[in-house]
Simulated scan of single mutants.
Amino acid sequence: MPADNAPVNGNLDDDDYPAFTMGRAADVLGTTPAFLRAVGEADLITPLRSEGGHRRYSRRQLRIAARARELVDRGTPVEAACRIVWLEDQLEDALRQNRDMRRELDERGTDI
């Protein structure tokens, strides 16, 4: 098994590659494995599992967990922080889709 953050088969640039073990992910975030388990139980992130059943996290998942940690550090309960981050993500997706549709309509010369 490669080191926690070593590239495998060119996966260095892949934000979704599960390169971090739970311990390494907790160290990177400055938190505990219990926090990572809590955000997983709240369905904010779902770590992949190694062949041995160990949790593995991607950089994208760490960014999401880091945002939840910011909210928790400000006094927000973990479950509420996870819901807020999920809603922020949904809003970002909706805004992006709206921009894309407006751009497409503009290119066609169609009014909304």
Rank of each mutant, 00 (worst) to 15 (best):
D16Y: 12
R74Y: 13
V78D: 01
L87S: 07
R55W: 06
T46A: 09
D93C: 07
R83Y: 09
L44D: 04
T32M: 03
D106C: 04
R108E: 13
E51F: 11
R69I: 07
A94T: 04
W86K: 03
D73H: 04
R24S: 13
I84H: 00
A65F: 08
R59C: 11
V85K: 00
H54E: 14
A68D: 01
N11Y: 15
C82K: 03
D93E: 12
V39S: 09
G10D: 13
D73S: 00
R59T: 15
L105M: 10
R60P: 07
D106E: 05
Q90D: 11
V78Q: 01
G30D: 13
G75Y: 11
R63Y: 05
I64S: 01
V39L: 05
L62H: 00
R63K: 10
V85F: 14
V8S: 09
V72I: 01
T46P: 00
G30P: 10
A25Y: 02
S50F: 04
G53S: 07
R99H: 14
S58R: 00
M22S: 13
E104Q: 09
V8W: 07
F20S: 07
I112A: 01
G23D: 13
F35V: 09
A3F: 15
N9I: 05
S50D: 06
E107K: 03
D14Y: 05
D4Y: 10
L71H: 00
A19K: 08
R49S: 11
S58A: 06
F35K: 01
R108M: 13
L36A: 07
V72Q: 01
E41C: 08
T46I: 08
L48E: 08
E104P: 00
L48F: 15
D16W: 11
R83K: 08
L87T: 02
Y17H: 08
R55T: 03
G109S: 10
T32G: 01
M101P: 04
L29C: 05
P33L: 00
A3W: 13
G23M: 14
A65H: 08
A19W: 04
P18N: 07
A34S: 11
P7K: 02
N5E: 10
M1H: 14
P18H: 03
R56N: 02
I45P: 09
N11D: 15
E104K: 14
L12T: 08
Q61C: 09
Y17M: 08
R83S: 11
N98C: 08
R60C: 10
Q61I: 14
M1I: 14
R96Q: 03
L95D: 14
G109L: 15
A80S: 12
E70C: 15
A19S: 14
V28F: 01
E104F: 08
R108I: 15
T110L: 14
L87C: 02
D100T: 06
T32Q: 00
G23V: 15
L12F: 12
H54S: 11
P47A: 01
V85Q: 03
A25P: 09
R59P: 05
T21Q: 03
L105Q: 06
D73I: 01
A80R: 14
V8T: 12
E107Y: 00
R83I: 15
L71A: 03
Q97D: 11
P47F: 05
C82W: 05
R83M: 12
M22G: 12
A68I: 07
A38Q: 12
